[in-house]
Design a protein around this nucleic acid. Structure first.
Lengths: 338, 338
DNA sequence: CTGAAAGCGCTAACAA
DNA sequence: TTGTTAGCGCTTTCAG
């Protein structure tokens, strides 16, 4: 037994147009007919067919989200931020967690086109985004999130990776450290680049020497942090503080130091980036840079809706969300609990 | 300048029907015309309008995913598993991370209906799922994931919470522990219940006394683990081992023990559940139960597609994925690295 | 093998 | 205030 707008119309003795008007709460319908229609809708348990509607209104109430392979905390927070804001506008989200692979992103882009979504939120932290951008010229309803845009004229929301790193390194310097190492992330990763840039400038601006030996390469995993730290501990002249470009690497580094009986922060101080939930529960608790991921997702959606409502021409409004240094035990601010 | 199937048809000197045939790789089209049409499609950069197509085929190639507020690791792994499998079938996913709130889930259900999605994957680990179930009678294309179904006739995929807990507790017993405490999760959470049940049975089956004092209540957060552990450490006669219902609580408990100078596992052994990435990097590394979340997502999708292809009547096929005890330092298996 | 035409379920002019 | 009608972009009989 079918159950469309026609059935409702017939049973309520009105035309489908009127049912439609009731559905879209048009003001012109009589209270009387409206009540009658609503009664039938309720009785038949009718629910408008989203696809039929979308075809004519040219609006799907769906926004697409294309993400690379980010760490779980980032992923879930971002999705939740996006979803929450989207729901507030009565939208749903289609997510695709593609790999960072350029070709995959491109294929997602085309697939998501074709009227499937009203807008797109893309995160593409790998440096080869430029290629991708070309492929989405026709669809101006896009907001980039934490991506390398290289001046391209798209709306974007990012977090202040540079500033967070800068402040954190400066904080380490305030503790008296002069030999500060950094555990970098992958070269082609935008976050990693920015955080490294912040480190570099903080070191320079504070008159410290840049020590190339102290610029270690990692890949944002615990394992790479562990491995890099083992290397550091073999150096004849060690750093007195380590700034890790993310918390995962910091955890790995911490483990390595524990195993080698290095006292943190006594012998070597440590700081991370991201402020993951477990940061405050390891020992010593991890000083880190808090990153407003949820808010970034939320803001991305709000930007998108400005475009969707045509208030702007999508002429590339940029927004940068502040990061915040969270001082705990591993940098030496708080005595280590015991 | 528009760019629909009509434009392609005109430019290729065929009817829209033929273009459609080419698009759907119908066998009947001549090689010659097919090439001509494809050329025009390419030239015009044409991409079929998904909504128009969905309206007639009654198929959206979208599956809805409704999740509660789970921890980030679980969330991202599950989504990735689902997304990966869905992509393989050329589907996309609409995700909604509602609260565990019953009413919210219901509203999501109705919203996702209406032709928007071809099927639904729902996770509803709170015990009041039964109510929810009633509201989705018309839509048989549903697979539940890690949910409390109470015998309801839906397809479902779960992980072996019970078995994992049972084996872990038994492992602790093998280490000689006779006084094993458990940090439970929320009462109404299905995972928490099953893990508790596993604990209880393992204790009983091995002839140990059930000590009600040792059954502590938490809520799966680090904080609750910390707080509960502080309580434990105040007991006059303490347990010699703690089984935490998840790793977050185990991390909190570990921190509490460190602060109070309790040696783990020397004085008190510790085990968690979930095997989050950082489990192997804390000190001592955390013995935990590995949970195949990605696979669960993947399996859920495969089950769904069996239903979608009408091979079964959705008569409630259940699948349970095995969990695996990962032995590390915190239970006493491996000497603590140092 | 190809084309004409009839919709899929809904909304939006335009009339009445 | 309500109904009639013409599509939205595509697929799919049914003829040819």
């Amino acid at each position: 037994m079918k159950n469309g707008i026609k059935e409702v119309a017939k049973k309520a003795n009105v035309s489908t147009a009127t049912v439609s008007r009731v559905l879209n709460s048009s003001e012109v319908v009589t209270e009387e007919t409206k009540r009658r229609v609503l009664a039938v809708i309720d009785e038949l348990n009718y629910m408008p067919h989203a696809i039929g509607r979308a075809l004519v209104t040219r609006q799907t109430n769906l926004i697409g989200v294309i993400l690379p392979d980010v760490h779980s905390e980032f992923f879930s927070e971002l999705i939740r931020g996006i979803d929450k804001a989207a729901r507030q506008h009565n939208y749903h989200i289609i997510v695709s967690s593609t790999h960072s692979d350029k070709r995959e992103i491109e294929s997602m882009l085309t697939v998501m086109q074709g009227g499937r979504v009203d807008g797109l939120i893309i995160m593409s932290p790998h440096i080869d985004t430029e290629e991708v951008i070309k492929h989405l010229s026709p669809l101006s309803r896009v907001v980039f999130v934490n991506s390398y845009l290289n001046g391209a004229s798209f709306d974007s929301v990012t977090i202040d990776n540079y500033g967070g790193a800068y402040q954190m390194v400066e904080h380490l310097i305030e503790h008296g450290h002069k030999r500060i190492a950094i555990l970098k992330g992958e070269e082609r990763n935008y976050d990693a680049q920015e955080r490294f840039r912040g480190y570099l400038d903080a070191v320079k601006d504070n008159g410290l020497d840049r020590i190339k030996n102290f610029e270690l390469l990692g890949d944002f995993t615990e394992e790479s942090g562990y491995d890099a730290m083992i290397g550091v501990l073999r150096m004849k002249s060690k750093p007195t503080a380590i700034f890790c470009s993310n918390d995962s690497m910091a955890l790995g580094a911490l483990r390595a130091m524990h195993e080698k009986d290095i006292i943190v922060p006594g012998e070597i101080a440590l700081a991370g980036f991201d402020d993951v939930p477990s940061a405050r529960y390891v020992l010593p608790s991890l000083t880190s840079v808090h990153v407003p991921i949820f808010e970034m997702g939320k803001e991305a959606v709000e930007h998108l809706f400005v475009s969707l409502e045509g208030k702007n021409g999508g002429e590339g409004k940029k927004m940068m969300l502040p990061t915040l240094v969270i001082k705990r035990e591993s940098c030496g601010c708080t005595p280590v609990a015991t």
